[in-house]
Amino acid sequence: MLNQTSAVTVRVLKQLSHDRRFVGLSLIVPVFVIYLLWIFFDAVERPFFNVETFVPPVAAFIVHFLTYVLCAIVLVRERSTHTLVRMFVSGYDRVSIIGGYLVAYSLLATLQSLIVLVMLNSLFELNYDMGTFVSMFVVIWLLAIISIALGIFVSNFARNEGQVFPFIPLVIMPSIFFSGMIMSVDLLPNWAAPLSYLTPMFYANEVIQSIISTGGNSMFMVGLIAYGGVILVLAIFTLRE
């Protein structure tokens, strides 16, 4: 299984290395969006959000959004070009296929998370100490990895690239409204509050708030990891030949 996983990883990395535009855009777009965010806050005299508690989760959301969208079409493309069937008939198993993609894209996610955090710290003059910086990186990186798994899980339900697009708002909109990023989850109606547990941004936001302020709850790190584990298992079991 390790040999198969490494074979998938090597192949995906080779393909990424041939697609420099894709890699470049994956790294430049979050930088550009963070910069736009900074311009907005710089232009607004009295920002309606506290920059220090609002901007870090938004940066995490940008990484979550991008990695999820990029990975949502990954296995769909394998299916539409029939290489997925060929992989299975050759002898590759589901765990190796998804594991290989996860490892390969996690390298990209690592770079994304690092670049976003450095931009954030520098542009907004947040002056994180090393401990805070490392803690923030771990959360954003973990969220990115989980977003990869989420994208792969969703792509199992689409037969072609066009069918992936409706799934994008289905995952991203709850991340915006139910994660506590814009308003506290406690202010949501009783029926909506449990929906927070279905989005990884909720757990990530809680942990980020616990790092940078007196709010949040660091125990939600366990929840974030558990969420990622569940999504990964679901992605593996829903991958069909």
Partner: peptide, 30 residues
Amino acid sequence: RPQVGYMPQHQALYEDLSARDNIRFFARAQ
């Protein structure tokens, strides 16, 4: 599956990879 080979109706190849890389990838399944 280790004893069966399959050539599908559609090419089912990674077009951005070389022939050697394609064959190596499917070979590494076994």
